[in-house]
Design a binder for these strands. Structure first.
Length: 277
DNA sequence: AACTTTAACAACCGCCGTCGA
DNA sequence: CTCGACGGCGGTTGTTAAAGT
């Protein structure tokens, strides 16, 4: 599964490592350590670049390196750390003994590809089911924001505006709106203004987390206690799909269909924005 | 059985931060 | 202060094995 080896114009060997090369590198480092990666290949009897040697050692030959077969605990940890740290692969790898940044990065990209494919399939399915739906702009004109009755209003000195969350009944209205959904979503900042959201909400890997931005206005526990019925749009959509007779139901147990309300880091805070589609 | 698609992963490349001269 | 060498990091590519049609 690797690029076949070849020698470039400078006489540096590239591509797949042979067993003999692995043995030379391993033997040298175990005996002398890696005091200088650039000079190391010369002394180890290799025609590789120092970078190539370092990569081979760190990701493959170094004792204790694990590859493949991720446990559920490891996968959960990767998801959690990635949500927290982003593409800081080396920082994530530090928390997973035996795993390298490269390995985790590879795993993540495979995972993201898989998930995007599933989401695109689901989006396509919804579009297909959209029948005679009106354009979103028309619906938004008809469905005035004040049709969503605010369940709670919190006055908070630090909040720039009143905190408004939608009551669960308005989720029923989403069912009417979603079939007409294309790539535009709207966020209601309060009951009077609407902002379009860039990008494709359904395939955005960050998903709802983007829209419940951290802010000093309302903390997560408060939000949950105030809105026990609130659903993430992904969760709502999964239920919508599952309940449709000919819909393609996602397999159970993947992160996309599992209900969740985006949870900020411990001690993090939620903005009270409600996503309206 | 042949062909296509997807998953897995090793390896390369370019960029950036650090450090010493 | 500047510059170059070096190590490390993250993005990306390319190949093959496995699964699906």
């Amino acid at each position: 599964m690797v690029k076949p080896s070849f020698v470039d114009k400078d006489g540096i060997k590239k591509g797949a490592w042979s067993e003999e090369e692995d043995n030379k590198l391993r033997a040298y480092i175990q005996r002398f350590g890696h005091w200088n990666w650039r000079l190391l290949p010369k002394y180890a009897g290799l025609t590789r670049s120092g970078k190539s040697c370092r990569l081979r050692w760190v990701n493959y030959l170094k004792p204790g390196v694990k590859r493949g077969n991720y446990s559920k605990v490891e996968v959960d940890l990767i998801m959690e750390l990635h949500a927290k740290l982003g593409n800081k692969w080396s920082a994530i790898a530090e928390k997973l003994p035996g795993r390298t940044d490269n390995d985790i990065k590879n795993y993540w990209h495979t995972y993201v590809k898989k998930r995007n494919r599933r989401n695109e399939a689901a989006s396509a399915k919804i579009k297909q089911q959209s029948c005679e739906a009106s354009p979103l702009s028309e619906i938004l004109q008809e469905e005035q924001p004040n049709q969503i009755s605010p369940q709670v209003t919190i006055q908070n000195e630090s909040a720039p505006k009143d905190v408004v969350v939608a009551e669960s009944s308005c989720l029923q209205e989403l069912e009417i709106l979603v079939p007409s959904l294309n790539s535009t979503s709207y966020v209601a900042h309060d009951m009077t203004s609407w902002d379009p959201v860039e990008g494709n909400f359904w395939t955005d890997e960050v998903g709802v987390i983007n829209y419940f931005e951290s802010s000093p206005e309302l903390n997560y526990d408060e939000l949950l206690s105030l809105t026990p019925n609130i659903m993430s749009p992904q969760h709502w959509l999964s239920e919508y799909i599952t309940s449709s007779s000919d819909a393609v139901a996602e397999p159970q147990g993947n992160s996309w269909t599992e209900p969740y309300l985006a949870q900020p880091e411990e001690g993090g805070l939620f903005s009270p924005y409600f996503l309206y589609l």
